[in-house]
């Protein structure tokens, strides 16, 4: 369970161009469920997602991961929580160019000091699971949109996270690939993982695998979807 208590995030605080991206959000996100943050561009979905995923700290408010309050943790501990608990799938996929799909998948686990051979084996198993093992040695820039996304999904799963966070995952995919992605989300759910997605794609928030849709506007929750 993730609990957000009166979260506020202001960028460039105290400056003339200060921007309040999230404004007083209180929310409880269920574990082992698929939650979609829906809303127009600039509604604060991505910011809220990055706060939940320990990528940024709120200006005000507290975030609890289970019983643990994570907002006040020093950077080192926050990073540790992030890499052991969360798997991220970005809008642009954000694969590192010039290295192979396999290396991209292994990348998040490098600093953890796992034995190289066993890490490689796990990464290959994931690529196999998502049907892109034949492309393991292809460089990131040579992968098609669908392959790149599946590589990004494998990368998000390499540290076996409990929570998967996806930011506009279907923004660069056609309908078929978008449906495929939601099937994968269904698999995550079946594996008892928590999935939080920010999207304004009806294919995502209208999908039957989604348990809850939270609508945001102007940094506030418009509808909590319960």
């Amino acid at each position: 369970m993730i609990e957000l208590r009166d979260i506020r995030k202001v960028f460039n605080e105290g400056k003339p161009h200060a921007l309040t991206a999230v404004d007083g959000v209180s929310l409880v996100l269920d574990a082992r469920a698929v939650t979609v943050l829906q809303g127009p561009s600039g509604s604060g979905k991505t910011t809220l997602l990055s706060l939940v995923g320990c990528m940024a700290r709120p200006t005000e408010g507290r975030i609890l991961l289970g019983d643990r309050e994570i907002t006040s943790l020093p950077e080192r501990f926050l990073t540790d929580v992030r890499r052991r608990t969360f798997g991220f799938i970005f809008q642009q996929f954000n694969l590192v160019k010039g290295i192979s799909a396999l290396e991209n998948v292994m990348l998040p686990a490098y600093p953890l000091g796992e034995h190289h051979a066993s890490l490689k084996k796990r990464a290959r198993a994931l690529l196999d699971l998502f049907g892109i093992l034949p492309r393991e040695s292809s460089k990131a820039e040579w992968l098609s949109g669908g392959e790149a996304q599946r590589t990004a999904i494998c990368r998000a799963l390499i540290n076996d996270p409990q929570i998967i966070i996806a930011d506009e995952p279907t923004a660069h995919l056609d309908t078929k690939l978008s449906r495929e992605f939601m099937d994968i989300v269904g698999r995550f759910k079946a594996e008892q993982k928590t999935v939080i997605i920010a999207s304004h794609d009806p294919l995502v928030y209208g999908s039957p695998v989604v348990d809850r849709v939270i609508t945001m506007r102007d940094g506030k929750i418009e509808a909590a979807g319960r």
Partner: peptide
């Protein structure tokens, strides 16, 4: 950008 990606996927500043 690459450093940003590494940090986003769980690399620490020290890594």
């Amino acid at each position: 950008k690459e450093i940003g990606i590494l940090k986003a996927i769980g690399w620490e500043t020290s890594d």
